[in-house]
């Protein structure tokens, strides 16, 4: 075992339970197929960034207890980060955020603040360790960019499911 189940692991589990409960409540808003594809997309997006930034090629921070790939890091990719995108998209639809650019800008700024606050708590609980050089300010542009990409992928999946129903040519 390359980790101990202590404070930072409990932090991840507790946060994920809260977020997954929230997603369970709002799940009816999303088509199951859309949820599946978006979940996998988010998981891979976060895992790719995490692997590139924390391990090769950048080696800028550690996730959890040490520099190895811990099971709890994989758990966090699947059940901690991904629920955020569903909550983000739920209110994006509910409040019709795409009606003008100013509202979108405000919404992205608000989510960037929430994400930075969560990142700060994660540092306090030892879920993330920036001892190898990553600065929290570097995270600021990554959140709105990731959010815009998530909206783009969400629209693509919705469009493909609604306007181009899949009919395989067997």
């Amino acid at each position: 075992m390359n980790f101990r189940f202590d404070g930072n692991e409990w932090f991840v589990v507790a946060c994920s339970i809260v977020l997954l409960t929230y997603v369970w409540i709002i799940r009816k808003h999303f088509q199951p197929m859309l949820m599946l594809i978006l979940w996998v997309y988010n998981l891979v997006f976060v895992a790719t960034l995490d692997y590139a930034l924390a391990a090769t090629p950048f080696h800028l921070y550690d996730c959890m207890d040490n520099a190895t790939y811990e099971p709890m890091a994989a758990y966090a990719h699947a059940f901690l980060y991904t629920p955020y995108s569903f909550i983000f998209l739920y209110y994006y639809d509910k409040w019709s955020i795409n009606r003008n650019k100013r509202v979108l800008l405000f919404y992205l700024s608000a989510w960037t603040c929430i994400a930075l606050f969560f990142e700060w708590i994660s540092l306090k609980f030892g879920f993330l360790d920036y001892g190898r050089g990553w600065k929290m300010t570097w995270s600021v542009p990554t959140y709105p960019l990731s959010a815009l990409l998530t909206i783009r992928v969400y629209r693509f999946i919705k469009d493909q499911l609604v306007n181009h129903p899949f009919r395989p040519q067997e």
């Binding site: 594809i37 891979v44 693509f156 999946i157 899949f166």
Partner: peptide, 13 residues
Amino acid sequence: APLEILFYWCIGS
């Protein structure tokens, strides 16, 4: 289909 390309690309990666 395009959705499959996105999905399998993600799973493969």
